[in-house]
């Protein structure tokens, strides 16, 4: 096992993917707890489509991909939040609207320019080969910022997730924390897209929490457990994808699915006993 690990870590691209992936899957999992419990799971999916379009346009135009797409996704995150907050539209409908239309824009733009090229394809389905030195650096920085902000406002995030009405009534700035969560989610989605691809990155947000709530009774244990499942699933998925030469993103999702099924079974047994 150790020999195997040593062997594949000799490949710099695997090592980079591992570092980026561990940070990203950790942060996505802890952000996901609040989003899933608030019944706002689909925001990740919506934002990944927005991110995909922004990245493809940036590639076609030869702009720096992350620097273009992160602000665009943040903007979309805030817009989604406002739309559902004001009850102008239901949250899920707003997400469907924004994600489909941004994807449409992206695809038309790319096909007008030069058709789907390898880079664009990579953003769609993820490609660990595409990760370079600056991606590693950037994703570590961003993940650390996300982690620090999350820990600092952890208790308030709990309150805003559990009971928005109470938080509002007692003078807590609910909007600030909702906005913070959406923005951090948007950023993590963009960073995670390199590995997982736009179509699968939202699973990093949703799956670990869904598994954890089957077994955990406390908010804190859900957060910690989600982070652990997420990182373990990522590492296992990456190694398996290397052994069988199958796509990394898809493998990681399947491992997460296994974890979910396992937790569901244990949860079911625990309830009966």
């Amino acid at each position: 096992m150790f020999d195997f690990a040593r062997e594949i870590l000799q490949y710099p691209f695997i090592f980079k993917a591992l570092v980026v992936g561990i940070f990203v899957s950790f942060c996505c999992a802890i952000l996901g707890v609040s989003l899933v419990l608030k019944r706002y799971s689909m925001i990740g999916d919506g934002l990944s489509h927005v991110g995909f379009s922004a990245l493809s346009i940036a590639v076609v135009m030869n702009w720096a991909p992350l620097l273009v797409s992160i602000p665009v996704v943040i903007l979309a995150a805030v817009l989604l939040l406002r739309l559902s907050e004001k009850n102008k539209m239901q949250g899920d409908a707003a997400i469907a609207l924004i994600s489909a239309s941004s994807l449409a824009f992206g695809i038309i733009f790319v096909s007008l320019a030069n058709g789907i090229n390898a880079d664009v394809f990579g953003y769609m389905f993820g490609s660990i080969l595409a990760i370079n030195q600056s991606d590693v650096f950037l994703s570590i920085c961003i993940s650390s910022i996300v982690l620090v902000l999350f820990i600092m406002s952890y208790n308030k995030i709990f309150l805003v997730t559990f009971d928005e009405n109470f938080a509002n009534a007692t003078g807590i700035n609910v909007r600030l924390y909702n906005t913070l969560l959406s923005i951090l989610t948007g950023i993590m989605i963009v960073v995670g897209m390199r590995i997982m691809g736009a179509l699968l990155v939202s699973s990093l947000i949703v799956f670990p929490t869904l598994s954890s709530v089957k077994m955990c009774k406390y908010f804190k244990s859900v957060v910690i457990n989600s982070a652990i499942i997420s990182v373990l699933s990522f590492v296992t998925g990456l190694f398996i994808s290397y052994i069988f030469s199958i796509p990394a993103g898809a493998t990681i999702v399947i491992i997460n699915l296994f974890a979910f099924i396992l937790y569901s079974i244990f949860g079911f047994i625990k309830e009966r006993v």
């Binding site: 709530v213 955990c216 908010f219 859900v222």
Partner: peptide, 8 residues
């Protein structure tokens, strides 16, 4: 939301 919320 609170019906199935994991919190102590």
């Amino acid at each position: 939301i609170q019906k199935n919320f994991p919190a102590s």
